[in-house]
Design a protein around this nucleic acid. Sequence first.
DNA 1: GCAGGGATTTGCGCAACCGCAATTGATTGT
DNA 2: ACAATCAATTGCGGTTGCGCAAATCCCTGC
Lengths: 228, 228
Amino acid sequence: MTALDDVLASAAPRSLARDCRVFNQGETRVRAHVLVDGWIRISQSGSDGGQVVLRFIGPGDIFGAVSLFTDRRYPADADTLTDATEVSWSDKALLELMSSHPQIAINAIRIVGQRLQEAQHRVRELATQSAERRVAHALLRLTRQVGTATARGIVIRFPLRRKDIADIAGTTLYSASRILSAWERAGWLKTLDRRIAVESLPELARIADEESETEGGVIAASADRHAG
Amino acid sequence: MTALDDVLASAAPRSLARDCRVFNQGETRVRAHVLVDGWIRISQSGSDGGQVVLRFIGPGDIFGAVSLFTDRRYPADADTLTDATEVSWSDKALLELMSSHPQIAINAIRIVGQRLQEAQHRVRELATQSAERRVAHALLRLTRQVGTATARGIVIRFPLRRKDIADIAGTTLYSASRILSAWERAGWLKTLDRRIAVESLPELARIADEESETEGGVIAASADRHAG
DNA sequence: GCAGGGATTTGCGCAACCGCAATTGATTGT
DNA sequence: ACAATCAATTGCGGTTGCGCAAATCCCTGC
């Protein structure tokens, strides 16, 4: 029997409607999931109200799997952003698969390792960079991961509220709103029906990478304009 | 041949002096390391000056291994905090070990998975909590990971500068200094020769967990005292 | 014991950013 | 079409925390 046969034999498929909870942070009946179709948001919230979006899951991505190896509780919430289809495996099935096909385990290390590096990169960003730069980075990553080139610019595949952007970039609803509407004013992007269309990637990249040479972001610049 | 025999046969041991660089961020001759003895600091710096401490490595911990599975560059710097001994494996040796002993790969997933969860937890902390709370959390983690109970309280095993604390908690040298000296004034800890001794864990835990009910940390409280 | 150099503290001013509150704009259900 | 709900914007004031600069502390080497 090939690895693929084994994998498929033990998989449990499921259909999910839009805007529904796939699993809850803290839940203990953990399974390893792979998204076949659609989009899912993984977010974590603290005992205080604080919340962050950890990542977006697209077709082909694994999610919820790490918890099988740690404390057997999901570390975050998963919500569908669109209609979606997933398959999942029990801990027992997954361990058997990995034992008989070590390459599966090795691939898993690659994936988890990449996410670890991303998370650590994000830790540095949050610890050292300004809110505006973080929003710029967040948008750049989104365009790369889930952007579609159109006549209006690069459109992000699913609707995002200001609060979502804030939770991705690690700032507040208000700051996110101010930053984004400043960029709209500058003509670098547009939001239409919660869907963000980036029209000038280079400008965002400039904000994101700038050596903070007191050139200031758009917010500071527009404040100057009011004063002058 | 047992798994352990295989592992030992392909290991390369090395001795390291204190305060020396084990590997550099970006280096491409990557190996998987295990620390046998001593302590190591893993830190990441950006093209701007920004720097964060990602974690401390103690006896028995793996480090630098994830890079074998991702882009084959170390994602951070590693420096010894004490004299140390490590063993390491080439990518080839590690992959062979994992292929012939899947349990090794599965254990690796557990370890990387735990670190991923820690990193994500830290992302949330940085995105949502105050600098003072983050310093409190950092100290609590340090006491748990590398604390020794003594007559003077729980002492952290290796010397830490204020800048180190700042890089761990994601704040600045100045803020870290103000926060820690406020806590010293309150009698909750002492620093002696760069070594921090925590005398009142409960107070730190209170700061770390408080629902931010405007009870305020020590900094705000002492400002009040000056004003009053 | 003394000079030198890093580490730390702290006053001060300032920039970033938070968050309420009020308004406007958009979306949905009946 | 209209009310009700939800999202977004923005003025304003307040807080946090950054960061320079100067003073002090403390360790190390001579």
